[in-house]
Design a protein around this nucleic acid. Structure first.
Lengths: 132, 132
DNA sequence: TGCGTTTTTGACAATCATTGTCGTTACCAC
DNA sequence: GTGGTAACGACAATGATTGTCAAAAACGCA
C-alpha cells in the first residue's frame, strides 16, 4: 500500500478510454465504450477497458452506477461528491449536489456509532421530454 | 393489469421462503436462503426461490439491496419507505428513515421537471463492534 | 540514448449469479 | 371430485465480469 512506487503508467489505451469518456455524455457500459473505441479504430481489449474503468473509478475520476439492470455504467463526472438524477426512459442525467443529504447520512451513521461512512444515492424519474 | 384474476397462489414454497425471511435478521442472498431451506429439509428449487423473492420484492414485502459485490441481498423489512445503514465488515443493518431526504429528492427532481420519482439510498460504514 | 525492470496489455477461459425452458405438479374455484 | 391454470423445479443458457499468463510497452536510470 501507500506510494511505494504505485506507478500508474500512461498508456495509449488509458488515454483513449479517458478521452472517449471526456467526449461522451451520459452513462455508458464498459462494453459500449469498448465497441465505440473499436469503431474509431482504436485497438483496445475488452479486459483492458474494464480494468481502466475500474482504475479511473478508484481514482475518483469517473462515477459508476449500478442500475437495476445488471450492467455497470460509467461516466466522466465533475469532481467532488454528487449524485445523479436519471431519466428512466432516455437516460438523460442531471448531476445534483445535496449537502443536506451528506450531512444527514453522516449524522445518522454517527448516531449509531458507525464510522468510515459512505453512501450511494440515485434518483430515478421521467424527464420532461419523456413524460408524454 | 388490475385484479382481473391475478391469482397469487399460496404454495408451500412461498410460505417457506416467507417464514424463513421472518426469522432471519439482516440481508441474505437468494442462494443463502436456498441453502438454509434445504438444511431445514424443505425441498425448494433455487429457481423458485429467485422467483418468490422477486415476487415478494415487487409486492413490497421485502427489500432488495445490491451491494458492490454483485449479489442481490433480500430482507424482510418494516413497511413503509426507509433506508439501510449497513456495516461493511459484519453486515449488521439498521433501518433508518429520512423524511428530509425523501422530500429533498422529490423537490430536486421536480425542479428539473422529472416526474414519477423514486430513489435508492444505502449508507455504508463500520459498526462499533468492527471498528477495532 | 539504450537497457532492464515492472507494469500493462489482451486473447481466451473460467466464474457465477441470474434467467429461460418446459414438462410436471399442486392449488383453487366450482 | 374435477378441471384449468399458475407455480414448481431440474437443467441449460445467458452474459457481464474477472482470472490467467505470455508478450509488449513504458518508465527510470545510467
Amino acid at each position: 500500500m501507500s506510494e511505494s512506487g504505485a506507478a500508474v503508467r500512461n498508456t495509449r489505451q488509458r488515454s483513449a478510454v479517458s478521452a472517449l469518456l471526456g467526449e461522451m455524455e451520459g452513462f455508458h457500459s464498459a462494453q459500449d465504450l469498448h465497441a465505440m473505441l473499436r469503431q474509431r479504430g482504436e485497438r483496445v481489449g475488452l479486459t483492458t477497458v474494464y480494468r481502466t474503468l475500474q482504475g479511473l473509478a478508484d481514482a475518483g475520476e469517473i462515477d459508476v452506477m449500478r442500475p437495476p439492470g445488471g450492467e455497470h455504467l460509467y461516466r466522466r463526472c465533475s469532481e467532488g461528491h454528487h449524485h445523479h438524477l436519471v431519466c428512466r426512459a432516455c437516460g438523460r442525467t442531471v448531476e445534483v449536489a445535496g449537502p443536506a443529504v451528506e450531512s444527514w447520512a453522516d449524522r445518522v451513521a454517527a448516531q449509531h456509532g458507525y464510522a468510515d461512512v459512505s453512501h450511494t444515492l440515485e434518483i430515478f424519474g421521467t424527464c420532461p421530454a419523456c413524460v408524454h
